[in-house]
């Protein structure tokens, strides 16, 4: 029973991280029908910048929670900047091009960003400082859920709630929903579509960066390649829940996280990645609209 709870907890933690990244994929796809291949790299860059900031702060004598907060904040700001720039350079010029072009551009940017970090920093794994403090009150359940897990779950939940509030109740959120429904009409009623798209990218990047910071301190090490795998899995989660559907992304992420955790725990961890890819392939073949999505009929 305890093992089951452990696995569930670890599954939820995975799911939370996947959700943070998946939201970026699903929002961007919902609005411009583009799979932002480079999104995983934003997550990776968020983690790297947090590590760098934390490293510098530690050397200059800071300590404790302040490092976590500063590192997280700066990483998030930078991720937003990268997301914004990415859209402006690699996707905006291709807004009206056939679907293949932005996809290839996205793959190109993914490669570019990976190698940019590799060359600017290092190909090796870098050890990430443990920034999350241990909470005393977690002692009794420590064998199932530790402080780090709690922080991840809570932070993710807060972030997702904040996003939902933003989309549902603010002006910019309304503009985003309108643009997703019908870009031309939104433009005609005065929505600055370019800004809306930029905001979408920025929001997705912020969430991804939060995920990167959390994962970095949780796992303890990062390297330039973590974006790729995490990206594919998060994308799987987004598709599983129905691409373009925000609650779907969260649902899909949780399902995938739990499924992976149980598979690794009860069967074998070697084929873990195959599992994720397998799920992806199966969904796309059998039910491309995902769990919560609607099948879109092409007009002939």
């Amino acid at each position: 029973m305890q093992y089951f709870l452990e696995l569930s907890c670890s599954g939820l933690v995975r799911g939370s991280i996947y959700a943070l990244i998946a939201l970026g994929y699903t929002m961007v796809y919902g609005i411009i029908q583009l799979i932002n291949f480079a999104h995983g790299e934003i997550y990776m860059i968020g983690a790297f910048i947090a590590l760098i900031v934390a490293g510098v702060l530690t050397i200059y004598g800071f300590s404790g929670v302040s490092i976590l907060i500063l590192a997280g904040l700066i990483a998030t700001i930078y991720a937003a900047a990268y997301g914004y720039t990415l859209e402006k350079i690699a996707y905006r010029p291709l807004r009206n091009a056939p679907r293949l072009s932005p996809l290839i551009s996205a793959i190109g940017m993914s490669l570019f960003l990976q190698n940019y970090v590799l060359l600017a920093q290092t190909p090796d794994f870098l050890s990430f400082p443990s920034l999350i403090p241990d909470f005393g009150f977690m002692e009794p359940v420590a064998h199932i859920m530790g402080s780090a897990e709690l922080v991840i779950l809570v932070t993710s939940a807060v972030a997702m709630v904040a996003l939902t509030v933003l989309i549902k109740y603010t002006r910019i959120g309304k503009a985003m929903r309108a643009t997703q429904q019908d870009m031309t009409m939104a433009r005609l009623v005065g929505v600055n579509v370019d800004n809306v798209i930029s905001v979408t990218f920025v929001l997705g990047s912020v969430l991804a960066a939060i995920g990167g910071v959390l994962v970095g301190s949780y796992i303890g090490q990062i390297n330039f390649y973590i974006g790729f795998m995490a990206g594919v899995k998060a994308f799987t989660a987004a598709v599983l829940g129905g691409i373009g559907n925000i609650p779907g992304a969260v649902l899909g992420a949780m399902v995938l996280g739990l499924a992976e955790s149980f598979a690794a725990g009860y069967i074998s961890s070697a084929y873990e990645d195959v599992f994720a890819f397998g799920v992806l392939v199966l969904i796309l073949i059998l039910r491309p609209s995902g769990l919560l999505g609607k099948a879109v009929k092409q007009k002939v």
Binding site: L34, L103, V232, Y271, D273
Partner: peptide, 24 residues
């Protein structure tokens, strides 16, 4: 199995196939 897929979805599935192949 991927005959009915188009565009992005096709790209992702084939990406999946390629990665699965390497892992196998």
């Amino acid at each position: 199995p991927i005959l009915r897929l188009r565009g992005d979805y096709l790209a992702i599935v084939t990406l999946g196939f390629g990665s699965i192949a390497k892992i196998v």
